[in-house]
Design a protein around this nucleic acid. Structure first.
Lengths: 205, 205
DNA sequence: ACCTGAACACCGTTCAAGT
DNA sequence: ACCTGAACACCGTTCAAGT
């Protein structure tokens, strides 16, 4: 066969196909991608840095879908809350991909720019520089922790035997179906309230 | 060869070997386990429910190492804080295993019992039953999110180009080396403060 | 019941050969 | 530069055969 006049493959199509496979199955393989694109397995390696490279492309694709305009809101805590929700929503759109994406940090410059802006936001609000990263990472913990909750195929308490753990079963019943969202709202609100108080303390000193 | 007089394999040794491999490499395979135990690959399948079964055994092993006595502390918020720290510490002892363990919930009854006790603790403290699960899941989000932070081989900001994201680099410098622990402390304290306030509101009504 | 040895389908990766 | 086709080492899983 040899080289075609117009390339059959490109990173964009490989990424899209991989994401489709992950959305469907929770995983992907290089041969599966090649099959869907009507191409030989080896061909994929001409466009991509191995399987890990494809995972990194998935990370970028999902991270890029975070609505960055949320960081334009004012005051600072509204901006932070909006960003956290957009961050979580981007992962929630691909729950089966979450285990694949969360393990490693995003390397894409465009995503690091979001963090740069968030740092600027907190500094402008009056947080001392040494406080900025702990605050930001704490928020990230809440976002990723709750995203993980969305990824689990079944919640811990769905396994619970009602006779062995009656109070757990009762509490679950009482919580209703939106427990994941309620928990995220609670954790986010707790974080914001704490951050606001911390900022006031800094201003008083 | 046939059946040996005394079994060469058991679930305990398989689990231990798998955990060793994961601690060293971040992953394991059934043939690797068999090789370390001087046994044929197929033999492992006589003791364990496939590769997924081994992962589940790892989950149980790590979850079992959570110090449950923390839940005996009083008042309720001290117990919850101690439990959260013990929970995180159990994962922190095997950072390379975290991606493997966090995806699915633990099915082991002994672990579900911990949740049962935590539910009881919150009910006794005065939380209305409908509030218990959101509170517990929010705490879980913080714990697992911060555990994920410990698992990352390199933090997001270690990748950051200081010239492209100068404020991020500056904030990182100012935060010092314990950013992960500081962030967890902050998120946990924020959660506890919020939960305390929530409880007071419930009592006033 | 428990281990061997061999088999099967699948995977990630590399690379000479072609255009 | 980009695709094919074949190769290699590895994986998860099954199973007849042995004791």
């Amino acid at each position: 066969m040899g080289r075609p006049r117009t390339p059959l493959l490109d990173r964009e199509r490989i990424t899209t196909t991989a994401l489709e496979l992950v959305d469907e199955q929770g995983e992907f393989s290089v041969p599966q991608i090649a099959r869907r694109l009507g191409v030989q397995t080896g061909s994929v390696y001409h466009h991509v840095d191995g399987r890990d490279g494809i995972v990194e492309l998935l990370r970028e694709r999902v991270a890029r879908s975070i609505d960055i305009t949320t960081l334009d809101a004012r005051p600072w805590d509204a901006a932070l809350a909006g960003w956290a929700r957009a961050y979580r929503a981007a992962f929630a759109a691909h729950p089966k991909a979450i285990p694949l994406l969360m393990t490693n940090p995003v390397r894409a410059p465009r995503v690091l720019q979001q963090y740069e802006r968030a740092v600027t936001l907190l500094q402008s609000a009056g947080f001392p520089t040494a406080e900025v990263m702990p605050v930001l990472v704490a928020l990230e913990n809440v976002v990723l922790g709750s995203a993980l909750d969305l990824a689990a195929p079944e919640a811990m308490w769905e396994i619970a035997d009602a006779s062995a753990t009656p109070r757990l079963a009762e509490a679950l019943d009482a919580a209703g179906p939106h427990r994941a969202d309620l928990a995220f709202d609670l954790a986010l609100e707790a974080f914001l309230a704490h951050a606001r108080r911390r900022l006031e303390e800094c201003r008083e000193e």
